[in-house]
């Protein structure tokens, strides 16, 4: 049986771990709240960008733009957005497994893999899979500025014809308890998936400044950037949610371990006392 000192040290060690997991749980909860707010705000902005796309499409039914027209997909760029850190249960593992499966099943013959996030970058490097581009240090705080060069390079890849499709794989945040890895197409834009405009659907005669084609040339990089932004904040929310769940379990488990160790401690102490009493009695009888 372990000595009383050993058990007390173990209890202290577990209690320290419990404090850390408890603090991480609280931090994840706060970050999750901020991330959920960011998702809602980003969605609102994207829906307004989609309104503009719909306005142009409604006003000019025959309007064509390279970003709106379907192409035969020979080459594709797949962007994988993953976690920044560990200690979040199966979050990273599930995403990596889904990404590997989605990449292998993708119909394109030429696949360029671009990765955002420290964990997936390390995963693909360990697997020996060549990356077209890797951005391991994109944080949610600096995402707005960090995304400019990323979206610009991806957009250039599409408009120059080097790839016929850009897709993104990330963990979609459904609720605090539900998250799911998904693959979705960014370019060409699927206007059918855009929600309908809430207001009056009557046709207006718009003044376009500049022409609709030039306007779309400027609109599409922004649309791509904001779709990536949404995927990053959703992934971040899912990661925080997974970490919150993992840390809650860890904190609860630490509590159980402490209770068990306290029981052991009391048992050991009682055994020691009993032994000492027995020794005293044996000594007095002798």
């Amino acid at each position: 049986m372990a000595s009383l000192r050993d058990i007390r040290e173990k209890i202290r060690g577990v209690a320290t771990t419990q404090q850390i997991t408890g603090a991480m749980k609280m931090m994840s909860t706060a970050r999750l709240g901020r991330a959920i707010e960011a998702i809602n705000l980003t969605k609102a902005y994207i829906s307004r960008l989609e309104h503009i796309v719909q306005s142009v499409k409604r006003e000019l039914p025959g309007f064509k733009h390279p970003c709106l027209s379907e192409r035969e997909v020979k080459n594709a760029c797949i962007v994988v957005i993953g976690g920044e850190r560990g200690l979040c249960g199966g979050f990273n593992h599930e995403l990596h497994r889904f990404a590997m499966q989605a990449i292998n099943e993708h119909p394109a013959t030429g696949r360029k893999l671009a990765v955002i996030g420290r964990k997936p970058v390390r995963f693909f490097e360990q697997k020996g899979i060549p990356l077209f581009a890797a951005w391991p240090d994109i944080g949610i705080k600096s995402v707005e500025t960090d995304l400019f060069p990323i979206s610009a390079s991806l957009f250039e890849l599409f408009v120059s014809g080097q790839v016929d499709e850009i897709s993104v794989i990330y963990t979609s945040f459904i609720s605090a308890t539900r998250k799911q890895p998904v693959i979705s197409r960014l370019l060409p834009v699927d206007t059918g998936s855009m929600g309908p405009r809430a207001e009056n659907q009557a046709t207006h005669t718009f003044d376009f400044l500049p022409s609709p084609a030039l306007l779309f040339d400027q609109l599409m990089p922004r649309y791509l950037r904001n779709l990536l932004h949404r995927a990053i904040v959703e992934s971040s929310a899912a990661e925080q949610s997974a970490r919150m769940t993992a840390m809650t379990s860890a904190t609860d488990r630490a509590e159980e371990i402490i209770d068990d160790l306290k029981l052991d401690l009391n048992r050991s102490r009682q055994a020691l006392i009993t032994r000492e009493i027995a020794e005293v009695i044996a000594g007095s009888q002798a």
Binding site: I52, S55, V56, H204, T205, F206, D207, F208, L209, P210, L214, L215, Q218
Partner: peptide
């Protein structure tokens, strides 16, 4: 700041879409 210089907008303007 429109694409061809400063652009003024007043109430009741015709629908506009500009960069």
């Amino acid at each position: 700041p429109g694409d061809r210089g400063s652009l003024g907008v007043l109430a009741g303007r015709q629908p506009l879409l500009t960069v």
